[in-house]
Amino acid sequence: MSPQTVIFYCLAVIIILSAVIATFARNIVNAAYGLFFTLLALGGVYVLLRADFLAVTQIVIYVGGILVLLLFGILLTNRRLEDLIISGQRSSLLGVVMGCVIFAVLLAIIFYARWPQSENAQLEGTTAPLGYLLLQNFLLPFEFSSITLLAALLGASYLVRPSERD
């Protein structure tokens, strides 16, 4: 068994365990830290796939951005362990059915999709090709997504601004 395989299975175990914690933890803080380990180990999987830029982006955006924001939100709520995650409306039957359907779809994708395979994975950096692709072939989608994000940013700051009367 190659060391890559060993590392992959270690990461897989971490991902699955922490994802289970993130899903089933009743305490919102534990769920957030479960998510932290999931995202971190996922970055490790990207490194194994030789997608170094994607791996660091994963850390920067998901760990450094989204998760920190999430934790910041929790920090500002002053209650601690009483904060249990219970959604208002629950239908266990519907939930189980939906979960099974999604799981079946994912399994079908995993087993039936034709993943592109290359015989000899190239060891050169992915940064430069990514840059060329983003600014040549995919310039329009790239700019479109940045404008969408900008619009979301403006909308958020419009929603939280203090009202005129204050």
Binding site: Y33, F36, L40, D52, F53, V56, T57, I59, V60, V63, G64, G65, L67, V68, L71, F72, L75, G125, T126, T127, A128
Partner: peptide, 21 residues
């Protein structure tokens, strides 16, 4: 690494998580 500088700047965020923790 090709992404050396990005990696260095990016890993600062792990410290933030630790501090919040």
């Amino acid at each position: 690494m090709d992404i050396g500088l990005f990696y260095i700047i990016g890993f600062a965020s792990i410290e933030v998580i630790g501090v919040i923790m």
